[in-house]
Design a protein around this nucleic acid. Sequence first.
RNA 1: GCUCAAGUGGCGGAAUUGGUAGACGCGCUGGAUUCAAAAUCCAGUUCUUUCGGGAGUGUGGGUUCGAUUCCCACCUUGAGUACCA
Length: 964
Amino acid sequence: MKYFHDKIEKKWQKFWADNQTFKASNNSDKPKYYVLDMFPYPSGAGLHVGHPLGYIASDIYARYKRHKGFNVLHPQGYDSFGLPAEQYAIQTGQHPAKTTEVNIATYRKQLDRIGFSFDWSREVRTSNPDFYKYTQWIFTLLFDSYYCKDANQARPISEIIPLFETEGNLPLNAVCDEDTPQITAEEWNNFSETEKQEFLLKYRLTFLSETTVNWCAELGTVLANDEIVNGVSERGGHPVVQKKMKQWSMRITAYAQRLLDDLQGLDWPQPIKDIQTNWIGRSEGAHLEFKIQNSTHKVGVFTTRPDTIFGVSFMTLAPEHELVAEITTAAQKEEVEAYIKATAKRSERDRMSDVKTISGCFTGAHAEHPFTKEAIPIYIGDYVLAGYGTGAVMAVPCGDQRDYDFAKHFNIPILNIFKDVDISEKAHEDKGNTIIVNSDFLTDLPYKKAFKTVIYEMEKQGFGYKKINYRLRDAVFSRQRYWGEPFPVYYKDGMPQMIAKEHLPIRLPEVENYLPTSDGKPPLGNANTWAWNVEKAEVVSNDLIDNKTIFPLELNTMPGWAGSSWYFNRYMDAHNTEDFAAAEALNYWQDVDLYIGGSEHATGHLLYSRFWQKFLYDLQYVPKKEYAKKLINQGMILGESAFVYRLVYTNQFISKNIFKKLLSNKDLSSKEEKLISNNWNNDIKGLMYQSIHVDVSIVNTSNELDVEAFKKSRKEYKDVEFILEDGKYIVGREVEKMSKSKYNVVNPDLICEEYGADSLRLFEMFLGPLEQSKPWKTSGISGVYSFLKKLWKLYQIGDNGIAHISEEEPSKESLKTLHKTIKKVDEDIANFSFNTSVSSFMIAVNELTQQKCNHRAILEPLLVLISPYAPHIAEELWEKLGHKGSISTVAYPEFDAKHLVESNKTYPISFNGKMRFTLDLSLDLSKEEIEAAVMADERTQKQLDGRTPKKVIVVPGKIVNIVG
RNA sequence: GCUCAAGUGGCGGAAUUGGUAGACGCGCUGGAUUCAAAAUCCAGUUCUUUCGGGAGUGUGGGUUCGAUUCCCACCUUGAGUACCA
């Protein structure tokens, strides 16, 4: 009986579904193990072969853990809110929920075909109201919390109100807005209700504030920093500008230090940890205040080099700095205003790309040096960013290249405060071995000492203190979009009010138009039924708004990362209607043991989700402060694009090798030359050609183009002429990212159709190390496909469908092959080195075929080893061996070292480290005996050619090396 | 610029604490089988060679009896970040 993947795979996929084979239980005597994939956004394009890579790896691991006796949770779901569905809705008027539904169905079908062992009974969808009910609830929890620096955790905001009432905010050590004023109890008590709420917003972990945001006009929404790549939007590549808007933000900065510290304990890839560390960007320094002469104002600055304070010769403020207007002198007013106007015009992108040009403007004002009391001119300049630190710097031109360049440009004096350092050419930015001079009480101190001393002195005199600054910004949480979670928020007297948990979810309203309203409100502004009736606790028509019991609801929606920031907890108890997950379920599953997904989420999802987990941990809703112990980033599978080469202004397409000859100006055969039109010959060196992507599906594995299919692919190709080689048109190849626009997408469905899911699974693993990116080459799949056929053959299935199997004791060689494989595969899985275990399966099957092994004692355990990788064939053969039911929880075979014990070793005999020949020797021999045996060998004498070796290194069981 | 990762045959890659470089597979070459093809099987396949051998893991040094593996410098590629004070 031959191997037919098609029938087998359908049969077992049905069996698994019918029997709920992979349904996980929330209580079990077995130890738990939670394997999680980053859930997909179901795009309209469906899956290509790159998508399942991580899923296959995690599935192998999950299946392996089941064999090893674990209660495995291996769920899957959909991150189903997002921009593409909405863009599509805008274009076609189709409701995003509808297209999302269709896309999910496609995804599910594609995933099922690959034979994953997901527990689909726990499926989640972020766009499902049963799910986003809890996303909304977590939002209200954040609103009702502040960050207490003393307890170093989030706490209910309600506990600070009594404090304000009795003592004001002075004793409160909490994270809050930079501009939070000090208030007394009296001031608080005299606040109106609205003022009180406004003040509390400065402390809440999610808060409304007027902030400078990244506005993307084409997408009609703001974007978070991680959604911008190279100054343009990640999705669509549209320009992004800075704009002031009232927005919801998440006070993630409160968690900066903990997000940094807890990276230590995570078994995550170092690059991800590095990226997060850089993104958080902790820097230690000092905050100090400079008095402004002839004014009551002070300018605060943050510096990492307070030790260079005596090198300060000017100050620079960001053009947007709020003090600029106040301190600018009448004489400088015109110039300053012109400069501000000019910089405001330049987009963020221009400012970023143009680092070289030095620009700025003197304000006419002077600050007072806190130690020397000398006057320091204050400039504005766009090299100072409003968003970092205080938006102002103390400029030390001798120690900072930017300050140096600025000083040179404006002819500001440069004071040298470094011992024996030449600063005539450039600033001296090194701090390691530098001694500070010309600096009053800091003179002759090295950097570290000076740093401590000056901070001590500043704190004593009261104009500065030690400060840790983070690059991490609070995360903007509002999106002016339709297809996202609505906020559980209504507005009373302009102040946001949360809707209680029992009234959630607040469902996304219907709108007839997904675009922003004509007066610039977000799409939810189009909804007619979008007001909150406080008494009835329901969403009602906007017409009823009276601002007494019926109030307008929030028009923004939440960003894409909202649902993904906590979904992993939901899988633990996906159908709970009372809580996001029951405490028992959370306590049972605890956290994710293995998380597999892409590294592109390093500063987005993987940071935000850690933040939410810590917050939920602080409120004691989850048992772990980090939700994923181990993270693996799968690499990208790249596509092999195919190209045809067209001569410009002609209808001719030239086959690759002839084209290459043309490019390198090699002689063409007269026959080839005749074929090519005169246009080209007139200007061979002009490289007048286009390389055009062709769809890889009309190119075979020998790079031969199906010319007829190509002609049919587009109208304009109908009458083209092909210059062939050997009667074929050969395409050029290049490795690129797999994408629709490059026509290099390979659909896993077609692979499953032709070679089967088991082949796809094995091949994706066999391509190379999981974490590396590597090109996809469909031609290579024949290797794993013939492996499966050989495996099948080994079980000698007769036409009656029964394996011809021996119950006798297998040979020593077969036992050795088996146990060698057990050991190797065990180690490989521990190292996530799935590519090498596929090759050891191949070796095992080749060896067992050679040995003509058909013994149950070998072939049964072998199936268990292979089952995580190629589960369908494993199930089928398991059945053919006479078993009922699934192989998926059969115990993993035990490795027994006794089968690998050897009596002989083939020693490599090397001379000066180069292996020259091998020698079979007993492992019982002593060092001396080995040396004697080697020296006695005639090949040794030949190598030595009469010389006497200086030294002979013998490592028993390993190697012999002769020096001399 | 800064931070990180990686450079091994025609290709994907292997070599777990330094110990036989190129496992396994693709591709290619030759052969068997076949009317033929597909499929299958067998042999070969780093380069070079005067067929004894010699060289070889991005480049140049170093440590070592021995280096793809450890150290230093450089080159190349990829990723992240970018006026962060």
